Simulated scan of single mutants.
Amino acid sequence: MGYTADDSLMVGTAVYAPAHDKLSEQAGRRLKLISGVVMAVLGLVVLLRPDWLT
């Protein structure tokens, strides 16, 4: 479930943003920050609570 939600968010953002406007440098940085935080959280979940991913 976690991977599906993460992928859906990233795909939705990637499809929506370029279709409506070019991604500004600031928006790109924000997207990278959000992506990094999501990846860090998922990494911690895999290490500490892998049973949540089943």
Results as ranks from 00 to 15, higher is better:
A17Y: 10
G12R: 05
A14N: 07
L44W: 07
A19M: 14
S24N: 03
V38D: 02
L31F: 03
G43K: 10
A27C: 02
E25A: 08
D21Q: 15
K32F: 03
S24Q: 02
G43S: 10
A14V: 02
S8T: 11
G43F: 09
M1E: 04
V37F: 14
E25L: 02
D6Q: 11
V37C: 05
A40F: 04
H20M: 15
S24T: 15
S35G: 04
A19C: 10
V38P: 00
L33T: 12
D6C: 06
K22F: 14
R29P: 00
Y16M: 11
K32E: 12
G43C: 04
S8F: 07
I34V: 13
V37E: 13
L33M: 11
A19S: 14
A17D: 08
L23H: 00
P50I: 05
H20W: 14
A5W: 14
T4S: 06
L31Y: 01
V38R: 02
M10N: 07
S24Y: 04
V41S: 04
H20Y: 15
L42W: 00
H20K: 14
S24L: 02
L42I: 13
L47P: 00
S35F: 01
G36K: 04
G36L: 01
P50Y: 01
P50G: 00
L48H: 11
L48D: 11
L42N: 14
T54D: 08
V45E: 02
I34Y: 05
M10I: 11
L33K: 12
M1F: 01
D21N: 14
M10D: 09
L42F: 07
H20G: 15
R30H: 12
G43W: 05
M10E: 08
M10W: 03
W52A: 13
G12N: 03
D6K: 08
A27D: 12
A27S: 08
Q26Y: 01
V41T: 11
G36Y: 01
Y3W: 10
R49K: 15
L31K: 00
E25K: 08
M39Y: 04
L31C: 03
